[in-house]
Amino acid sequence: MKFAIVVFPGSNCDHDAYYAAKHVLGVDAEFVWHKELGLQGADVVILPGGFSYGDYLRTGSIARFSPVMASVLAFAEAGGPVLGICNGFQILLETGLLPGGMLYNRSVKFQCEQVYVRVEELDTSFTCTATLGQVLRIPIAHGEGNYFAPPDELDLLEANRQVVFRYCDVEGAVVDSANPNGSARGIAGLCNKQRNVVALMPHPERACESAMGSADGLVVFESAIAQLKSDGMVLPG
């Protein structure tokens, strides 16, 4: 089983995702340079955090045009599990695979801190081994993570059960005081309608060992591994 970690110019959590996959979870992992046209036969694709192209124009807006993205979109279309973390989420929004956009945090500042998110959906490629309502302690590190979409779009997301993670307090209550950035309806993570593409602003790869303050992020990666195993390694594409 192989995880591909796509490296854009300006990615900076690529090594962390690689380390979590390879050294904590013990699966194969490979960096895929953004100019490549294939995914090296990967079973899971991670778009890591960072500041692709400096995020100077709009977060994720240039990376979305990298050559490798055509392969990522085809992989996703075929049902392959794709995880977007932080900047990876922002890139997926730019591709249109997920709706909405990111505003600046309501503090108008970059924020790096531990937060809590509640697992809202279990039938996705990255939450299938979690429990419903499970509260995960995972850090955020972003300036633009304030998720926005028009109300009817948000209603549609809810109706389609595409909200996968919501910011919550330690007890699991979704309250405004536990929302670190002002995201609409406390949304921390989404999935596509096929439920194989999942994106979230918090960094599960930073929460895979107790030495880092939390191992709650493991469930995100373990879910993908478990799903692939139960599928008998029948690969999409």
């Binding site: 959590c13 500042k109 970059f110 924020q111 790096c112 850090p139 590190a141 930073r206 880092m212």
Partner: peptide, 9 residues
Amino acid sequence: RQYDHMVRT
């Protein structure tokens, strides 16, 4: 809080 103090794990 304004500094990413965790990247590189």
